[in-house]
């Protein structure tokens, strides 16, 4: 997983690139790592282009991340879901919870023009 910070229209947006599998084996360490990212900024994008598989634990972890970002008055947006991962989000109706974009740059730029966290 790679994490980088991007400045979008004066807002610090964290972009995490998820790779491989997100399942019961790695969802807990993933959530821990997320807390570190969240300390840097509550505006986050998960680029799922290289995410090949997700199970309910992984999905639960991502929903947990969203909840934590919202608690900090931020948001977590998803980008580049492949068909397989998208099916899991659709099936569990988790798709309704997230703003999902075709690619990472669209997701990141969607934060432009929105109020800075904590200033609204």
């Amino acid at each position: 997983m790679k994490f980088s910070l991007d400045n979008i229209d004066g807002r610090l947006v964290g972009i995490a690139r998820l790779e491989g599998r997100l399942d019961a084996r790695n969802s807990k360490p993933f959530q821990k790592t997320f807390l570190e990212w969240l300390e840097k900024t509550p505006l986050l994008v998960f680029d799922c282009t290289l995410l090949e598989f997700i199970d309910t634990s992984g999905l639960g972890a991502i929903v947990g991340c969203l909840r934590k970002a919202l608690e900090k008055e931020g948001d977590l947006r998803l980008a580049g879901l492949n068909d397989k991962v998208s099916m899991v989000f659709e099936m569990t109706q988790a798709k309704r919870l997230f703003s999902i974009f075709a690619n990472q740059s669209d997701a990141a730029s969607s934060f432009a023009g929105e109020p800075n966290p904590g200033t609204a």
Partner: peptide, 19 residues
């Protein structure tokens, strides 16, 4: 296994009770 007939994508759920 869950299949999307349109895209042909197929995913095997590893959760014993299909999620």
């Amino acid at each position: 296994r869950l299949n999307d007939p349109k895209s042909g994508a197929s995913i095997a759920m590893e959760d014993p009770h299909l999620l």
